[in-house]
Design a protein around this nucleic acid. Structure first.
Length: 297
DNA sequence: AACCAGGACACAA
DNA sequence: TTGTGTCATGGT
């Protein structure tokens, strides 16, 4: 039934697959009995965790699997990341609540487009909008027999050709213009997303913020989740609350003030720290489907 | 049924 | 520089 050639197992430590895939950094993973199903690098993938092992199945020749190891960040040592965190109480609480939470290394265009769609939307709704965009404008990818169909995330070139009104129909409202213009600038070579990882953080951030509809928060999401910028620190309402409660004694704080504090307090792994604070805050509020999978440690 | 969401922007003071 | 209204939509 299963071709072992198209299956691969890695041994991991401190890796919580379910929490990672469902933590609001990527929007295409669906949990099924067999595991988490998504599309990475144009391939259908099913991931599941069994203790200290992650098992991946694909529907087509996977080549050397490096594309998936890179996506999952399997080369990252969690203990090294956590060592770099400040030792304050809020940070310790977040780490113990989110053991095994990782950052993915996503495709920059998919990440940018997804977060353009994210503004003032709940994570559930972002997933729906992205799913519809892929279903209507992506390309079908091979899936194993009996599996529901799957699509690639539509390329910038593909989206640049689609009328704004057509995009708008994918539940994206006023964000359709932002997505359309970003697609045109990326497809036209005006903005080279692949180069952002080689620029200093502030320059890469400024380049992204040159896009209409991309401010500081969305820019930092893209930089952190897809451009290897570990100090990027996106501040949404959840992180704002977490910082206010954990570091400002619950007093209201301005966004500028929070950003300045974060830049000097959280160190070289600030982006990872941010993801822990974000997820812990959402978990406390009951916004996270807990119990998905187990932690390997 | 209000309320809110991994915001950004134009505009006012 | 900081504050407020607007955009659009559907889940909870």
């Amino acid at each position: 039934m299963k071709d072992p050639q198209w299956q691969r197992t890695w041994t991991v430590r401190d890796f919580h697959l379910g929490m990672t895939l469902d933590s609001g950094q990527a929007f295409r993973w669906a949990q099924r009995d067999a595991g988490w199903v998504g599309v990475v690098g144009g391939r259908w993938v099913c991931l599941r965790q069994e203790g200290e092992r992650i098992v991946a199945k694909v529907a087509d020749d996977p080549g050397d699997w490096r594309w998936l190891a890179e996506y999952l960040g399997l080369d990252v040592e969690w203990s090294r990341v956590v060592e770099a965190f400040p030792g304050d109480a809020a940070m310790r609480d977040a780490v113990s609540a989110c053991r095994g939470l990782r950052l993915l290394r996503q495709d920059p265009w998919e990440c940018l487009a997804s977060f353009i769609l994210s503004s003032t939307k709940q994570i559930v709704q972002i997933r729906q909008s992205v799913a519809q965009l892929c279903e209507r404008h992506g390309k079908r990818v091979p899936v194993p027999p009996g599996e529901p169909p799957a699509w690639t995330f539509p390329s910038a070139a593909a989206l640049a050709r689609i009328p704004e009104a057509t995009l708008r129909a994918c539940r994206m409202g006023f964000r359709a213009r932002y997505l359309s213009e970003a697609a045109q600038r990326v497809a036209g070579g005006d903005l080279d997303l692949g180069q952002l990882r080689h620029l200093p953080l502030d320059e890469a951030r400024a380049a992204l913020m040159g896009l209409v509809g991309v401010g500081r928060k969305i820019a930092d999401c893209v930089l952190l989740f897809s451009c290897h910028q570990p100090r990027a620190f996106p501040v949404d309402v959840w992180v704002l609350r977490a910082l206010r409660d954990g570091y400002f004694d619950g007093r209201p704080v301005a966004m500028r003030q929070v950003e300045a504090f974060a830049a000097q307090h959280f160190g070289p792994q600030a982006g990872y720290a941010q993801q822990y604070l974000f997820h812990a805050a959402r978990a406390r509020a009951g916004r996270v489907a807990s119990g998905a999978g187990t932690v390997a440690d």
